[in-house]
């Protein structure tokens, strides 16, 4: 039985110690926002934060988490960076299929937490571990800049869809 601190709550799970955090989150705790893409730390779809650091939960044995705080996409909006990132993601409408986006947002939020004003190069470096098969990279760059600066970047989508 392991005890995990996930999104501010203590969760118990009766699982083998080598079980990756990803599957504990998805199949045992029931938080399916964190995604499985490759299982070998190559795609970043499974990114969560442990004590604020982005990690690949598909490769992280649950026993190695200890009492550190796990934050997933479901709760990242409660952090200031997470909220800014999500808003910017909507403002430039980054998502396509959306499957990689939990991981993208987790990586982006971690980037802004440590580098509030990232350069283009910082963005590429921090986000290079997250694959998007739909190819949303151009807008990811725009959204991170918008989240950092608060200034509109790229094509701003109309939010409410109302008629003029």
């Amino acid at each position: 039985m392991v005890t995990l601190r996930v999104n501010g709550e203590d969760r118990q799970a009766d699982v083998p110690p080598d079980m990756p955090l990803l599957w504990v989150l998805r199949d045992v705790i029931g938080l399916t926002g964190t995604k499985f893409g490759c299982g070998i730390a190559q795609c970043g779809a499974c990114t969560v934060h442990i004590d604020g650091q982005p990690i690949r939960s598909c490769q992280m044995p649950v026993s190695a988490v200890g009492n550190r705080a796990v934050t997933t996409i479901e709760a990242i909006g409660l952090t200031p960076e997470g909220a800014k990132v999500q808003q910017a993601w909507l403002a430039v409408d980054v998502v396509q299929c959306g499957y990689c986006q939990s991981g993208q947002i987790m990586s982006a939020a971690a980037l802004l937490a440590r580098t509030p004003n990232p350069t283009d190069r910082d963005i590429d470096t921090a986000m290079a571990g997250n694959i998007c098969r739909c190819g949303t990279y151009v807008r990811i760059r725009e959204a991170i800049k918008q989240a950092a600066t608060g200034q509109p970047q790229g094509l701003q989508v109309v939010v409410d869809g109302s008629a003029a």
């Binding site: 995604k35 980054v94 959306g98 986006q101």
Partner: peptide, 25 residues
């Protein structure tokens, strides 16, 4: 009034907070 405008995708909000249910979920 709708067609031709750069409108936000209808599926965006849930895709930025992990709420969208894919087959695997």
């Amino acid at each position: 009034t709708v067609i031709g405008k750069p409108l936000r995708r209808v599926d965006s909000p849930d895709k930025v907070n992990g709420g969208t249910q894919f087959g695997i979920d």
